[in-house]
């Protein structure tokens, strides 16, 4: 975890390893516990928890690895989730509830229900997704 030294900034950054189900969920639970200690409103924490958890699982399950950054700026929590590919073929399909490209193995672990991106969008006040074979980038804003 790299945290900034600025007095009036909250910045968190975590790298996420592909296919690492042992550590999967640690980043979002870490973020959650920090936001609780900082005293962010519970409803906001819940949204952030869902967004970061789903983004983290997406990176673990579907990508070659990446990172999640979180910043508090003014009344916004800004979350950047980035991965190194292989990218989402059809974003509009991926945004549909229940659509999933997860393998049977992953589903056996209880993941891959096709709710990840729709859930993230539902919890966001601003949501942007870009994807190419080079990687996928999510930009999310949650206001409080």
């Amino acid at each position: 975890m790299n945290n900034s030294k600025d007095k009036n900034k909250i910045k968190l950054e975590y790298s996420i390893i592909s296919n690492d189900f042992k550590r999967a969920g640690e980043t979002s639970s870490n973020i959650k516990s920090i936001l609780k200690k900082v005293g962010i409103d519970n409803k906001v924490i819940r949204k952030v928890a869902i967004v970061t958890y789903e983004a983290e699982m997406n990176i673990v399950i579907h990508s070659y690895g990446g990172n999640i950054k979180l910043m508090v700026e003014g009344n916004n929590i800004i979350i950047n989730a980035y991965d190194k590919g292989p990218g989402i073929e059809d974003i509009s399909l991926a945004m549909k509830e229940g659509y999933s490209t997860a393998t049977d193995e992953v589903r056996e672990l209880g993941f891959g229900a096709g709710m990840g991106l729709p859930n993230i969008k539902k919890c966001s006040d601003y949501f942007k997704i870009e994807s190419s074979t080079e990687g996928t980038r999510l930009l999310i804003k949650i206001s409080f």
Binding site: K5, K7, N8, I10, K36, K37, V38, G39, N42
Partner: peptide
């Protein structure tokens, strides 16, 4: 809620405490 986990009333001070 019982805010027993909160480290400071000021969000940024709380965060520098976390660091």
């Amino acid at each position: 809620p019982r805010g027993a986990l909160k480290l400071d009333d000021d969000m940024f001070k709380a965060f520098s405490k976390i660091e």
